[in-house]
Amino acid sequence: MSSVQTGLRYSVEHEWIDTEASPAKVGVSKVAADALGDVVYVDLPEVGATVTAGETCGEIESTKSVSDLYSPVTGTVAAVNDDVADNPALVNEDPYGAGWLFTVEVETEGPLLSAEEYAQQNDVTL
């Protein structure tokens, strides 16, 4: 069953961001991970690259499909999760923990939803 973690903010494209951390940590929600199925490959932005809120910055490939990864904010990528690159299944196993994707030095935020708003929009529990 999909769930939403409180304390994070979410994009309508199903990315989460922890803006309390500096740099901010980004991943995909459990809703997205469940919909994707078994993740087999992730293409993440490069460290130092500029990402733009609402624009694609990578891809996530599963046994079902290939989905674009969207940045929830505009800023500079500070780090990528090499563990996810080596073991993409972490996105399914622990999307809010070990399955984070990249960190970003935030310049501006895109439109983000609270955990409550995201849960309501996707008809899932907190």
Score class of each variant (00 low, 15 high):
residue 22 S to G: 04
residue 45 P to F: 12
residue 25 K to D: 04
residue 88 P to W: 08
residue 108 T to S: 15
residue 59 E to Q: 06
residue 83 D to W: 08
residue 110 G to R: 06
residue 126 L to N: 12
residue 107 E to S: 07
residue 113 L to N: 10
residue 89 A to C: 00
residue 53 A to C: 08
residue 45 P to N: 10
residue 33 A to C: 10
residue 44 L to F: 10
residue 55 E to R: 12
residue 68 D to M: 00
residue 23 P to L: 04
residue 5 Q to W: 00
residue 82 D to H: 13
residue 55 E to L: 13
residue 3 S to E: 15
residue 49 A to N: 03
residue 52 T to Q: 08
residue 39 V to F: 08
residue 60 I to N: 09
residue 84 V to G: 02
residue 12 V to N: 14
residue 96 Y to F: 07
residue 11 S to H: 15
residue 69 L to A: 14
residue 74 T to C: 07
residue 14 H to G: 02
residue 88 P to D: 09
residue 31 V to D: 06
residue 63 T to H: 02
residue 94 D to N: 11
residue 25 K to I: 00
residue 15 E to I: 02
residue 123 D to L: 00
residue 10 Y to E: 04
residue 121 Q to M: 15
residue 49 A to G: 01
residue 31 V to R: 01
residue 126 L to V: 15
residue 99 G to E: 14
residue 29 S to W: 07
residue 103 T to W: 05
residue 43 D to I: 13
residue 50 T to F: 03
residue 85 A to I: 15
residue 30 K to W: 06
residue 71 S to C: 04
residue 86 D to Q: 14
residue 101 L to Q: 09
residue 94 D to F: 01
residue 110 G to D: 04
residue 76 T to C: 04
residue 60 I to R: 10
residue 29 S to L: 03
residue 21 A to Y: 06
residue 102 F to A: 03
residue 66 V to E: 07
residue 91 V to S: 04
residue 13 E to Q: 12
residue 22 S to C: 00
residue 106 V to E: 09
residue 105 E to C: 02
residue 66 V to G: 09
residue 93 E to L: 03
residue 41 Y to S: 09
residue 117 E to L: 13
residue 51 V to Y: 05
residue 91 V to K: 12
residue 78 A to Y: 07
residue 20 E to H: 11
residue 5 Q to N: 12
residue 17 I to S: 05
residue 92 N to E: 13
residue 3 S to K: 02
residue 37 G to S: 12
residue 113 L to D: 11
residue 46 E to A: 15
residue 32 A to M: 11
residue 115 A to K: 00
residue 95 P to L: 03
residue 123 D to S: 05
residue 83 D to H: 06
residue 102 F to D: 07
residue 91 V to R: 12
residue 34 D to K: 06
residue 113 L to H: 03
residue 43 D to W: 08
residue 14 H to P: 03
residue 1 M to C: 05
residue 120 Q to A: 15
residue 45 P to H: 06
residue 15 E to Y: 12
residue 123 D to F: 05
residue 60 I to Y: 00
residue 100 W to T: 14
residue 126 L to R: 02
residue 33 A to K: 07
residue 56 T to D: 12
residue 1 M to K: 06
residue 24 A to D: 06
residue 94 D to T: 01
residue 11 S to A: 15
residue 77 V to I: 11
residue 3 S to D: 13
residue 20 E to F: 03
residue 45 P to D: 08
residue 27 G to H: 10
residue 103 T to K: 11
residue 65 S to E: 09
residue 42 V to R: 10
residue 30 K to G: 11
residue 72 P to V: 02
residue 11 S to L: 09
residue 51 V to L: 01
residue 112 L to Y: 07
